[in-house]
Structures are given as C-alpha cells and as structure tokens.
Design a protein around this nucleic acid. Structure first.
Lengths: 221, 221
DNA sequence: ATAATAGTGTCTATTAGACACTATTAA
DNA sequence: TTAATAGTGTCTAATAGACACTATTAT
C-alpha cells in the first residue's frame, strides 16, 4: 500500500492597480516542470510543527516573503489531482500588501491577475477560486481586507481596497461608520501625501490585536 | 522517513431538546481504546475518491447514518496530536436531524451535549469547538440551520432551531421576513400537529437546490 | 483664489423590531 | 366559549445611503 502524498499549496494574493493578483512560480521539478503554479511542497515531518508552518516555510523559501497573514483555506484530495498518486493538499491563502512583494519577492515570482488566469496545473485553479470566494465573502463583514492595504493606509485607500474586493463602490459615510464600529484600525499621529495638491488624509494602521485574528461586524458593509 | 498518517474525523451534530449534541463512539482500537471519541478513520486510497468520501464512508460504517449534510471544516495536523506520529486529520462536520439519528444510529452511538463535553482524545475537543464556531457563525446569515430541522418542519420549529444555534430569541416577524427573503424553503400542501389544541402550522421543506449548497442572506438575521 | 480630495453634518430611505391583532384548531 | 399557538398588519426604532457642506493642502 503506497502512502498518501501530503503537501501544502498556497495562493498568495495581493492587490495592485491591475486588480487582485496571485503569485505563481515556474515549477522546478516534475510533474509539470517549468509550468507556472502555486507555491507548494511536501510537508516535512521532521521540521514542520503543523501544516501552516509548512506553508510559511514553503512561501518563505520559494517566494522570499514572510507573509503577514495566512489562513487555512481547505484541503483538496483524491487519486487523480496529482499524477504521482493519491494525494492531499492542505491549501492556504496569504494576503500580502503589494509593497512587500515589490520589496522582497524573489525574481521568479510572477503575479497573475485572478480574472484572467491561464490554466494551472493540478487543481490549482480550484484552489485560487476557493481563495477568492473566501476572501470576497469575508470582505463583506470583516477586517480581512486590511491585510491587503499596507502597513499604514488612509481611509480613502482602505475604502478602495474594500471596493476592489467587493466589486462595487461603497458609500463614504457608511464605510467610515462601519470602520469605526469595527474598531479594528487606529489613527496614527501624522498625515500623508504632503506632496499632493489637496487636503492630506489621516494615516491608520491595523490594531496589533487584529493582525492574527479577524474582527467581525454584526451587520455587513 | 515514516509517512504521514492521513485520517478523517467528523463531528456529527444534531439538535435535541437538551440542546446541540455531538455523536461520540467508544474507540475500538489503540490508541485511546475504549475512550469515547469522534468517529474517524484512515483514508483508504484504494476506495475513497476524496477525503469527503472517506468521511461519509466512516460515518456510515461507524454510526449507521447516511448524513444528509457534510461540510469540510478544517485540517488538523502536527507531530503530537496522535501518539502514532506526525498526522493529518481532515475534519468534517455533519448536520443530521435528530429523527434520523433516532431511527438509524447504531446502538453504540452516544450523544453528548456540546456545552458539557468531557475531555476527548486527540484534538477532538478543538475539532468540536471549531465546528460549533462554524455552525454558529453561518447560522447568522444562511440556510445552514435548516439541515438540523428535519425533513419537513414548520416556521415556528425552524425559528426554534435558529434560536438554539444563535443563543437568543428572534423576532417572529423579522424571522419570517428573512426566511422569505432567503427563499430557501418552500411550503408543502398540508399542515401539521392536527392533534394539537391550536391552529396548525404550515409545513415547509428545504428546496431541493439548497440541500447541498447554502443560501446566503445579504444582511444577517 | 482655485482645484483637488479629506472628512463631517444631516436629511431621507430602507430595514429591523415591537406590538397588537386576526386565524384556526381542540376541548 | 376558551385556551393555545399560527400568522399578519402596522407603527416605531435603528441603520444605511445621498448629498451637500466644511477643511486643508499645493499651485
């Protein structure tokens, strides 16, 4: 009896001007050697303390990035998804502000717009779709999108992030009321865009205690 | 290098008068032989088409029940959760109307109220807690609780199910408006409780198309 | 001053909840 | 008829959105 193959895969998502994008890497080994795919790899039973650690290790090794937000997505499994045999992939998604990718990503990391994805090997397409569903769903009623907005951000910037994820414009007054009610971000003394010909916006950051845990709204946006 | 142990575990949840309960079974083998635990077992690479199939197979075999609603919960993993070695458990939760359990469950199936759980082996406690969080969270804005309400049910019964899950009384008018807006259940010609000394209630059932897929509300209950 | 965007006050529309009323059954 | 619960109409409260206004910057 051949053992089951245990791997992790991660959809590393970021928001650029071109829209939401996912990080792809050319595979170094068979199967699908040379094909762009999600970063992934075997669980190392001798060093990983859980599958999430394996995902962090793989992401750091293959993309160069210490991802600030990682969440388990779902586990994909079956006899046919990997040509090597019956396999389990514990899939994660990571949210990373684009500024971190621009600064730290390995040269081989490609960003592909999620709305015009080429075919991906294995069931990586399904993993990306599931990640988008999760991200868009949780954006309706949580602080999750803050993780795409950068270390510090203004409310107009954050609103644009939410709008990009929800796919529709939001009311400015309502958005600000909701952000206040959510109580997940805090103003920083100091302002931004002093080089711009208009009133500068207040800077905010995600409160420390909500970097790992989400803050939920009683009623959505 | 020892291979990673791949298993599935399931929290089979049902709603009785005593409240939300989870199905436990005395373990037939080591480790923890004789201890009450969640139904679970190895993935069988030669017969299971995915981990969800393994969960259905294990539940049918060990509890006697063909569960009508099964959803993947999360995957638990690590070197210490199982004394046999580095292991992965793909955890599921099942929702089953109590009438089905009363009719079909094997004699060995115990139901334990989730609010006064004894210690459970492995990380089964964490699995149950995660299932409850998921169930209660989704109950706020989806048709999920309908799966605990039986094959056919009345609106007052369904409201009691939602109230049990949300832990608070709901406004009758608002609840009915939301159920109508959700459009996941349909009235059945015929009525119920003709043996009762009051006006009989209209019977409803979950629409066919929402047995496998959830229906979501734009704004929660 | 003007242009540009940030931020807020306030009115209106929508949605949720309270409450009371009618409906239908058995005894 | 009464008692009991189902189901609904309608008023009030709470929430969300529209819109306009003030604020602050560079030119």
């Amino acid at each position: 009896m051949t053992p089951i193959i245990c791997t992790v895969d991660a959809a590393l998502l970021t928001l650029r001007d071109e829209g939401l994008s996912v990080a792809l890497l050319k595979r170094e080994h068979e199967p699908y050697k040379g094909v762009a795919a999600l970063p992934g790899g075997y669980i190392h039973a001798d060093e990983d303390l859980c599958a999430g650690d394996a995902a962090l290790r793989v992401l750091k090794k293959k993309t160069g990035i210490d991802v600030p937000y990682l969440e388990q997505l779902a586990t994909f499994s079956g006899p046919a998804r990997d040509p090597r045999g019956w396999s389990v992939s514990i899939a994660y998604y990571a949210l990373v502000p684009y500024e971190i990718i621009a600064r730290a990503a390995h040269p081989g990391v490609q960003l592909a717009g999620v709305d015009r994805l080429h075919t991906l090997p294995f069931d990586h397409r399904a993993i990306v779709e599931t990640a988008l569903e999760r991200l868009r769903g949780k954006s309706q009623y949580s602080s999750l999108p803050c993780h795409l907005a950068g270390e510090v951000f203004t409310l107009p910037q954050l609103q644009k992030v939410y709008e990009a994820l929800m796919g529709e414009p939001l009311n400015k007054v309502s958005f600000r009321r909701k952000m206040q009610e959510m109580d997940a971000i805090e103003a920083i003394a100091g302002e931004m865009e002093p080089a711009s010909a208009h009133r500068p916006a207040q800077l905010y950051r995600l409160k420390q205690e909500f970097r790992a845990q989400l803050r939920l709204l009683k009623r959505g946006l």
